[in-house]
């Protein structure tokens, strides 16, 4: 029932009210079942069991469907761009079921690290393995069936509708048995991102937040084991920020591997299992939010005094800058 909670911002009947335009009756029924009841894992084809059938034949050495599926293994990676060292000897791991947050000040190398994992940026040294296989052994198409990427800035060159853009997320599965899931995947993605009322709108005419959600829906429709999200909350209001992280959390709980670059440390503390703190291209801390979010360490990394508080009711960590001018200082607080 966890996913039912995602629809909190809409009426309880929302998934039915916004009947997907293209979905056949059967597909819409599946969707509603998926949304209201326990998510049916089998319906997620590409991520589970059956995947090995199509990918193992083509996948590199034993195929991404074999053990290690969904895992990310970055080992001693260094990257230099135009003579400037961006990443230095970075190592980190992520595995299915995990939501890993990459945090750090501007210019720390978070986005570059995500770009490296996505396979867009060559490394000077070190290795990146996806599902146990070095990135170099993946073809562009195979990789697209294993991981999806949401970039920080997304734009659509021509006036495609929201539905058309989300349908593009199904491109990697053309010609595979999972093509049959297209309608269900698109409808589910539109549902999760609360876009049913905007399906026929042209993407370039949407607001920044709506565009960001459409891009996220496209990524979700791709239905890959690994999701790489680069600041997915940047253009969103606080309600939709929560929604996006809840969606990411739900995907991780379903067995996906989610790596997300975040600026908001509070969001990272609330939703991530693991946090990787970067500074000047180096990993300075890597662990659970409680381990990483140490006031002294954060204050040093962000070069600004920060305090870490515990929410009095739910116990999540709150990371706030120390402000003296208008409010009481931290010393005065118990």
């Amino acid at each position: 029932m966890r996913r039912a909670g995602l629809f909190g911002r809409r009426g309880a009947g929302a998934p039915d009210a916004g009947t997907p335009r293209r979905a056949s009756g059967a597909a819409a029924g599946d969707l509603a079942g998926d949304a209201h009841g326990a998510p049916s894992r089998a319906a997620h084809g590409p991520r589970f069991g059956g995947t090995a059938d199509i990918t193992s034949g083509k996948g590199p050495r034993g195929g991404p469907g074999s053990q290690g599926a969904g895992s990310i293994d970055v080992d001693g990676v260094s990257v230099t761009i135009d003579g400037t060292g961006i990443l230095h000897d970075v190592s980190l791991q992520a595995h299915p079921g995990m939501l890993l947050a990459l945090v750090g000040p501007n210019g720390a190398g978070k986005s570059t690290l995500l770009t490296v994992i996505a396979g867009d940026q060559a490394v000077d040294s070190g290795t990146v393995r996806v599902a146990g296989h070095p990135l170099a052994s993946w073809s562009i198409k195979q990789l697209a069936r294993e991981r999806s990427v949401l970039l920080q800035q997304t734009s659509v060159a021509f006036p495609f509708t929201v539905t058309q853009v989300v349908e593009m997320g199904r491109a990697p599965w053309i010609g595979t048995p999972f093509e049959a899931d297209d309608e269900a995947a698109v409808a589910e993605a539109l549902d999760l991102t609360d876009l049913h009322s905007l399906t026929e709108r042209h993407v370039p005419s949407l607001s920044g937040g709506e565009r960001a959600r459409a891009a996220l829906a496209r990524v979700l429709a791709q239905r890959t084991r690994i999701l790489l999200l680069d600041e997915p909350t940047a253009a969103l209001d606080i309600g939709h920020q929560e929604d996006v992280l809840r969606i990411a959390r739900a995907q991780a709980d379903l067995g996906d591997t989610v790596v997300v670059v975040l600026h908001d440390l509070g969001l990272a503390a609330a939703f991530a299992d693991r946090v990787c703190l970067l500074e000047n291209g180096r990993v300075v801390a890597d662990g659970t939010p409680t381990e990483v979010f140490d006031a002294e360490l954060l204050s040093a990394v962000y070069r600004h005094p920060l305090e870490v508080l515990t929410h009095p009711v739910n116990g999540t960590l709150l990371i706030l800058p120390v402000r003296s001018a208008r409010g009481p200082s931290s010393e005065e607080n118990p």
């Binding site: 996505a118 867009d120 562009i140 198409k141 195979q142 990789l143 697209a144 069936r145 991981r147 999806s148 990427v149 970039l151 997304t154 734009s155 659509v156 060159a157 021509f158 495609f160 058309q164 853009v165 593009m168 997320g169 491109a171 990697p172 053309i174 496209r218 791709q222």
Partner: peptide
């Protein structure tokens, strides 16, 4: 034609969707 659609998302996003 269908690949050209993906290109509208930008080169990087198109590549992430498996397009050469």
């Amino acid at each position: 034609a269908r690949r050209l659609d993906l290109l509208s998302l930008g080169e990087r996003s198109a590549r992430h969707l498996g397009l050469n």
